[in-house]
Simulated assay, not measured.
Amino acid sequence: MSIQAVIFDWAGTTIDYGSQAPIFAFQQAFKTAGIDLTVAEIRRDMGLDKAQHIRKIMALPDVQTTWQQLYHRLPTATDRDQIYHDFKQRLLTELPNFAQLKPGMAAVITYLTDNQLPYGTTSGYDADMLKIVLPVAAEQGYQPRVNVTSEQTNGVGRPAAAMLAHACDLLGITDRQAVLKVGDSINDILEAKNAGCLSVGMVDGSNLMGLTEAEFAALTPVEQANARQMVSDQYHGVQADFILTSMAELPALITTLNREGEKL
Score class of each variant (00 low, 15 high):
236 H>A: 08
153 T>E: 09
223 E>S: 14
187 N>A: 02
150 S>W: 10
202 M>V: 09
201 G>D: 09
181 K>R: 03
228 R>W: 14
198 L>K: 04
216 F>K: 13
158 R>S: 06
159 P>S: 15
184 D>A: 02
206 S>H: 00
174 T>E: 15
192 A>F: 00
189 I>V: 00
155 G>S: 08
164 L>P: 04
227 A>C: 08
235 Y>N: 05
207 N>F: 05
226 N>S: 03
214 A>V: 13
219 L>M: 08
222 V>D: 15
221 P>S: 13
160 A>H: 07
165 A>D: 06
186 I>E: 06
175 D>M: 11
160 A>W: 06
229 Q>C: 12
191 E>M: 00
158 R>A: 03
153 T>S: 10
148 V>K: 08
212 T>C: 04
183 G>M: 05
201 G>K: 11
178 A>C: 06
223 E>P: 13
199 S>I: 02
226 N>V: 13
195 A>P: 00
235 Y>T: 04
196 G>M: 02
218 A>T: 07
212 T>Q: 06
225 A>E: 14
145 R>S: 15
175 D>T: 07
204 D>N: 04
189 I>L: 00
166 H>W: 05
210 G>W: 10
145 R>T: 15
228 R>T: 12
197 C>P: 02
187 N>M: 02
156 V>S: 13
165 A>H: 06
236 H>L: 14
228 R>F: 14
224 Q>D: 04
229 Q>R: 11
193 K>Y: 01
184 D>L: 06
179 V>C: 03
176 R>P: 09
171 L>H: 03
233 D>I: 05
179 V>A: 02
201 G>S: 14
164 L>V: 08
223 E>R: 14
197 C>L: 01
233 D>Q: 10
225 A>T: 15
173 I>F: 12
170 L>T: 03
175 D>Y: 12
186 I>P: 14
228 R>N: 14
152 Q>W: 09
192 A>R: 00
169 D>V: 07
183 G>S: 07
202 M>D: 00
225 A>V: 11
214 A>N: 15
164 L>G: 11
215 E>K: 09
201 G>C: 10
163 M>F: 11
215 E>V: 09
206 S>P: 00
209 M>R: 10
172 G>L: 08
149 T>N: 10
168 C>Y: 04
225 A>C: 13
193 K>E: 01
154 N>K: 12
167 A>F: 15
163 M>A: 10
171 L>Y: 02
152 Q>G: 03
177 Q>D: 13
214 A>L: 11
168 C>R: 02
210 G>M: 11
145 R>K: 15
234 Q>C: 02
158 R>Y: 05
233 D>A: 08
202 M>L: 10
189 I>R: 01
205 G>N: 07
157 G>R: 07
177 Q>E: 14
197 C>K: 00
236 H>I: 12
234 Q>H: 08
214 A>I: 07
165 A>Q: 11
212 T>G: 02
185 S>P: 01
174 T>W: 05
173 I>L: 13
170 L>R: 04
169 D>I: 04
225 A>K: 15
220 T>F: 09
155 G>K: 08
207 N>S: 11
165 A>L: 12
171 L>K: 03
148 V>M: 06
151 E>G: 13
227 A>W: 14
189 I>D: 00
